[in-house]
Amino acid sequence: MHPHASSLLGLLRRSERVVDAAIAPVVFTAMAALIAVITLQVVSRVFFTAVGWTEEVARFLLVWITFLAATLAFRRGRHIAVTFVVDALPGLPRRLVHLAALLVMVGFLAALVVIGYEYMQVQSFQKSASMRLSMTWVYAVMPLAAAIMAWFALVDIIALVLGESPSRAEEPAA
Rank of each mutant, 00 (worst) to 15 (best):
M1S: 12
H2L: 13
P3E: 15
H4A: 15
H4Q: 14
S6D: 15
S7C: 01
S7N: 12
L9Y: 03
G10Y: 00
G10P: 06
G10A: 12
S15E: 05
S15G: 14
S15P: 00
R17Y: 03
V19A: 13
V19N: 01
D20M: 03
A21C: 06
A22M: 08
A22P: 01
V26T: 12
V26R: 02
V26W: 03
V26L: 14
V27K: 05
A30R: 00
A30D: 02
A32W: 00
L34Q: 06
A36M: 08
T39A: 15
T39Y: 04
T39L: 11
Q41I: 00
V42L: 07
R45L: 01
V46Q: 11
F48I: 09
F48P: 01
T49W: 09
A50Q: 08
V51C: 02
G52W: 00
W53H: 09
T54P: 07
V57M: 09
V57E: 02
V57H: 01
V57F: 10
A58K: 04
F60M: 14
L61F: 09
L62G: 08
L62Q: 07
L62D: 03
L62F: 13
V63R: 05
I65P: 03
T66L: 09
A70G: 12
A73L: 14
A73V: 10
A73C: 13
R75L: 08
R78T: 06
A81S: 14
A81K: 15
A81E: 13
T83M: 04
F84I: 05
V85A: 12
V86H: 01
D87V: 07
D87Q: 13
A88I: 04
A88E: 04
A88T: 07
L89D: 10
P90H: 13
P90D: 05
P90V: 10
P90K: 10
P93T: 06
R94K: 15
R94P: 01
R94T: 00
R95M: 05
R95S: 11
R95T: 10
V97P: 04
A100R: 04
A100V: 13
A101N: 07
A101L: 11
L102T: 00
L102P: 05
V104G: 06
M105L: 13
G107F: 11
F108Q: 02
A110N: 01
A111I: 05
L112K: 00
V113Q: 02
V113K: 06
V113R: 05
V113W: 03
V113S: 08
V114P: 00
V114E: 03
I115N: 11
G116R: 07
G116N: 04
G116F: 03
Y119D: 02
Q123E: 12
Q123A: 15
F125T: 13
Q126W: 08
Q126P: 01
S128H: 04
A129L: 08
S130M: 11
M131N: 04
L133C: 00
L133E: 03
T136A: 05
V138K: 06
M142W: 14
P143D: 00
L144N: 07
A145N: 09
A145E: 09
A147V: 08
A150T: 06
F152D: 06
A153T: 15
L154M: 15
D156S: 15
A159R: 10
L160Q: 13
V161C: 15
L162E: 14
L162W: 13
R168W: 15
R168V: 00
A169Y: 13
E171I: 11
P172R: 14
